[in-house]
Design a protein around this nucleic acid. Sequence first.
DNA 1: GTACTACTTGTACTAGCGTTCAAGTAATGT
DNA 2: ACATTACTTGAACGCTAGTACAAGTAGTAC
Lengths: 195, 195
Amino acid sequence: MSEANEPVDGRRARGNKRRAEIIDATLAVVQRDGAAGVTHRTVAKQAGITTSLSTYYFATLDDLLVAALSTVADDYTKRIQDIVDGPGDKLRGLAELIVESGGSGRERALAERELATLAARRPALAAVARRWRENVAELAATLTGDRTAQAALVAASDGLCTAILIDNAPADLNYVYDVLDQAIRSSRGPRGRSA
Amino acid sequence: MSEANEPVDGRRARGNKRRAEIIDATLAVVQRDGAAGVTHRTVAKQAGITTSLSTYYFATLDDLLVAALSTVADDYTKRIQDIVDGPGDKLRGLAELIVESGGSGRERALAERELATLAARRPALAAVARRWRENVAELAATLTGDRTAQAALVAASDGLCTAILIDNAPADLNYVYDVLDQAIRSSRGPRGRSA
DNA sequence: GTACTACTTGTACTAGCGTTCAAGTAATGT
DNA sequence: ACATTACTTGAACGCTAGTACAAGTAGTAC
């Protein structure tokens, strides 16, 4: 708990605030213009600062994108954890989270997706994107012990999100819930692959 | 059949060939450098032509990307149709298609994914990306009459693809097959949501 | 042949990019 | 007070981008 939490220096506190502001501005730009629209200049303008200040805090654009994706991933992790630790129907909680991607959180979800796609090509981002999926996997593990069912749920969650974003679908909660439920349920009957 | 298939003019035939070459070059660039790396200049260099020629055939970069995504989607459609029409285990065929995304076809799959992500922001591309998913949905319809199970299979296919690309997973065929099977199978038992 | 059309090139323009840097300001420590 | 450190600025560098355009080449039609 005594790591880097207490900014003894008042200037450092302001600096951290700036950093957060810049990351917010970055996400705003991704939401508005896509990941391709992120430049030191557009971000700086969005944040109301000078370009050089943006480079002062994030020397390279990559640093900026990594920071932005990390922040988004952290938020997502928190949401998932809330569902896992919460008292309610976890599967329904997950469904609500997914449906939200098509509603008010659409732009946000789109931004997340663009950053995640970016991750496929940048090792630095890949680690963050992976942790993302592991959060859902963890939630899945609380719902079933069957590893295949867990994997199906994770995959279905991701695929549903894509469907909602691309198809611009109505994103009916019951529908999403049913699909997730379908994915995790198993007849566990006449099948049983050996190895 | 008598639409725009017969190039009376030999020059026009060459032109169409050029167009195809440029699209190929575009896909090659996306595979190598990502969608962000697509510029008239990089594409032209890849195709071994001048920059102006690239703009002659595709006035704007957007035109080029739309054309590229359309081509890729057509290829994909053909692959899916082969599985649907083929004699073998359709689910296994789908699994093989997905696993291929992690193997030799990784770069290709990555390119497809980047273009599809791009689609979320460009209406012109969105239609193409949607047709894509409908192909898998069609395949799913041949495997089960249950609409929820169909949706689960489509979502799982997509999610698995993402997992393989981002996690750089081993992409074991049996594993993928099992997850797909899990998604489409249903106990159809004690559940039965009403509305 | 000549006229026409489709294709192809080289060059040049403007605009925006990432990044650097010397200089300036303000908070902190002593 | 003074030195130190953290933050902030404005200007500039070299580079690449999209695009336009006049000129040239080569098939096609008459």
